[in-house]
Each structure stands twice: as C-alpha cells, then as structure tokens.
Design a protein around this nucleic acid. Structure first.
Lengths: 183, 183
DNA sequence: TTTCAGATGTCAGTTTGTGACACTATTTTA
DNA sequence: TAAAATAGTGTCACAAACTGACATCTGAAA
C-alpha cells in the first residue's frame, strides 16, 4: 500500500472519529506510519486529502456527452442524462458518500472546496458541448446541468428511498415546469 | 476611522501592490497601525478582509423580489430583473470591482470563498420566492438565477463596453433559446 | 554490482490563528 | 459627577499548518 493511500485511509478514519478540525496532520501521518512532511508532499493541504479525485466525474460525464450526442435532443437533457449515466456509482457507495458528506458539511472551508469541484465540472461539460453548440450556450447549459445535479444530489442525501437517477429526473421535470407551465 | 476600516484599506493597498499570498497579516496590521491580534479579532481569517459584506446583495435582491412579485411573470424572469435592479452599483464602481476581482482570481482559496457567496445568494433568493411558489421550484429558480448572474458578471468583467444590465438580459435570452428553439 | 531517480526523513523556520490576561477608553447607570 | 460595566486593544505564549534545504534510503535499470 502506497503512503498516499495509507494517508487517505488514516485521514478518513480520524476525520470520522474526531472531526476534521480536531485532527492534526501530525496524527494522520503518525497513524499512516509516515512523517508530516510526507503528507504535505502528497497533498497540497490538509483538506486536499478529501478531494484528490482527478475530476473523474467530469471525465466520465464529458465522455458520455461526446459519444451520445444527438441533434434531436436538447443539450440540457443530454447533460442531465450524462449524470444519470454515472449515478449508479453513488447509489452503490451510499455509505461512503454519506460519511464524506458529513465531514464536509461540518466545516465551512471544506464546503467551499466542494463548491470548487462544481466549477471544474462546469468546465468539463461546457467543453464537451462546445463542438456542437455556441460557446455561451454550452456554458449556460453546463451551469444549469450542474445546478440540477447539485439539487438532485442534495435530495438524494436527505432521502434514502429514491435513487440518484430518479432525483435527477424529478429535478429535470421541475425545470421543464419552470419554463413552460407558469406563463 | 475605526481600526476595521483601516485594516481593510491597508489590506486592499498591499494586496494590489504585492499580491495576496505575499503580504502577511503582520504587514497589514502594521500599515493600519494596530496589532496582528486585533486583525484576527476583526476578521476571522486573512481572506475575510475581502469578504466582509453582510450579504448586502442578497438582501437587496430579496427585497426587490418580494415587493415586485407578479403572478403573470415567470419567477426566473423576476429573479433576473432583481439583479438588473442592483446592477448599477457594479457599473458605477467598475474600477474597484475589477481590482477586487483581480485579487480573487490570483488565488484559488479566494475563488472558493467567492463561490460560497453564491450559495448564500441562492438561499436569499430562494427564501424570497418561497412564499409564492413551491419550495423546490423556488430553489431551482434561485440556482438558475445565480448562474445567470455569474455568467453575466463574467462577461461584464471581460467586456467594458456593455453594462451589467445588458449582459444579464443577453444571458437571459440565451436561456430562453436554450429551452424553446432547439427541440 | 553500480548507478541513478524518486520517495522519505530531518530539521529549522515562517505564517496563520487562538487563548488568557491586563490595560484603556467609552458609555451606562446610580 | 462618580462608579461601574463594556468594548476594543496590546502583550505574550503557543499550537498547527505549511515550506525549503539537504540528507538518506530504496528499488529498478544499466
């Protein structure tokens, strides 16, 4: 097991046990059997250990969009479907996702960081849409898609009954109402 | 002049002169003629000195929405108009806004913090809409409205020719195209 | 085996941020 | 007006987050 993984495991354990602010990098490093200095070589700062994914989501979503493009389909619908295509991952790791979410919600700095991930998601989606649509339109679509995802994700966190895919569709329908039924 | 204001002025000066990361709290405090300790009593951390506004925007936008509610109008349109109603402030302080923006763009931590302001904006707008609409619908409208604002704001930063109000309307029209003209 | 690159340890130092306590100025209240 | 509460500050000591420089180790290629 590489030291990076050991550090991540140690951090996860300690953050859940005693909270993010109450665990020091020192402790994480000790539990992982390495030095504090090594921690900071693997992660740019303390919170980075929770956010290491290399925009995996973004890449998978973008891939879905480029390979499932269809002129007949509204771009926002396509983007939402791309989220549906990866939603199973969330349903399958509900416990882990919930634990991580709890840590993040407990600390404002972490919430800010989580928000930043939304920005890079927007960029990924916008770029994957750009070959087909006008740049501004792609960006706006990406922004709305990510908001729909955020909202569906929040509902999914709070309600264990429905799958993330169902929540995504629910919110998407809400969006359609937003436009057409309230004139 | 209260020490809080002196600290803000000193910070603004130094951040522009030497960048955010290269100026220490120590230096800010010295220039303001106070102690480092009193800096941290006024601001919860170093970046807080740039973000002290008490959600002024949110309050004004929410006020506009509650007092200009109209069943005939789509909620998102109303929300965008509420942004238009405060856009003059940006046009009138373009230089200051640009300077602040430049500082924020130079540092990832600051960008994250700026994003958090978007979240509290969403909450303000969502709450001001809730008396009239379903909760989920209010939230989605608020999220979209803030995205429209973000995008318009970005365009306004990059292009000195158009007012923020014009940019807001441009992006709103884009949104209407997004829905109806691409079936 | 030798060599070389990459990962880790060591250590000293800067910076951020906090707690505790003392002092001063301003405002309240008797 | 005088006494007393209160808010704002300074000082000091300290924990924790990070960084740079340099030494050391380890594993794989030559």
């Amino acid at each position: 097991m590489k030291s990076k993984e050991k550090l991540q495991a140690a951090a996860a354990k300690l953050f859940i046990e005693k909270g993010f602010e109450n665990t020091t990098v020192q402790e994480i490093a000790s539990l992982a059997g390495v030095t504090e200095r090594t921690f900071f070589r693997q992660f740019k700062d303390k919170s980075d250990v929770l956010f290491d994914t290399n925009n995996d989501l973004g890449q998978r979503v973008a891939a879905y969009i480029t390979s499932n493009f269809d002129v007949e389909k509204k771009p926002l619908k396509l983007a939402v479907e791309s989220f549906v295509s990866i939603s199973e991952f969330f349903d399958n790791s509900r416990e882990r996702v919930l634990a991580r979410n709890q840590i993040i919600q407990s600390n404002p700095d972490l919430q800010e960081r989580e928000l930043l991930k939304g920005q890079v998601l927007i960029t990924s989606i916008s770029n994957s849409l750009s070959p087909q649509y006008d740049g501004d339109l792609s960006e706006l679509t990406a922004r709305f898609a990510v908001e729909i995802f955020h909202m569906a994700y929040t509902k999914w966190i709070k309600n264990a009954e429905k799958s993330l895919a169902e929540q995504l569709l629910t919110v998407y329908e809400l969006y359609e109402n937003l436009f057409c039924c309230l004139e």
